[in-house]
Amino acid sequence: GLPEGWEMRFTVDGIPYFVDHNRRTTTYIDPRTG
């Protein structure tokens, strides 16, 4: 799974992105792969 505090969501286009609730940021880069 994802690191603690992270969540995976999808855009309206079906593109996955990642929400970091710890820092309240979003990124398209998987936190597991950097």
Rank of each mutant, 00 (worst) to 15 (best):
I15M: 08
G34E: 14
F18I: 02
T27V: 06
P31Q: 03
T27D: 07
V19A: 03
I15P: 05
M8S: 02
F18H: 00
T26I: 15
E7I: 05
N22E: 11
Y17S: 04
D13T: 13
E7N: 02
P3M: 04
G14E: 05
H21Q: 10
T25H: 10
L2R: 01
Y17G: 03
D20V: 03
Y28V: 12
T11W: 02
N22P: 07
P16D: 02
R24I: 08
F10R: 07
W6K: 01
D13G: 10
E4T: 10
D13A: 13
D20L: 02
G14A: 03
G5L: 04
R32P: 07
I15V: 12
I15K: 11
H21L: 11
D13M: 09
L2I: 07
T26Y: 15
E4D: 13
P31K: 00
I29M: 07
G14Q: 07
G5D: 04
R24Y: 10
V19N: 02
H21D: 08
W6S: 01
R32N: 07
R23P: 03
R32W: 07
I29N: 09
Y28I: 12
R9M: 09
P16T: 06
R32T: 06
T33P: 10
N22T: 11
N22Q: 11
Y28W: 15
F10M: 11
N22S: 10
I15Y: 08
H21V: 12
F10V: 08
D13K: 11
F18N: 00
G34S: 13
I15D: 08
I29L: 11
E4R: 08
D30K: 00
I29D: 14
D20H: 08
M8A: 07
V12Q: 13
Y28S: 14
Y28L: 15
G14L: 05
H21W: 10
I15E: 09
V12H: 13
T33F: 09
F18W: 14
R9I: 06
G34I: 15
I29F: 10
T26G: 08
R32Y: 06
T27M: 05
M8T: 04
E7Y: 06
V12M: 11
Y17P: 02
V12F: 11
P3D: 06
I29P: 07
W6Q: 01
V19K: 03
Y17V: 12
P16L: 09
Y17Q: 06
G34D: 15
I29S: 07
G14K: 06
P31N: 01
P31V: 02
F10G: 01
E4M: 09
F18Y: 10
D13E: 12
T11P: 01
E4H: 12
P3I: 03
G14W: 03
R9P: 00
P16R: 10
P31H: 02
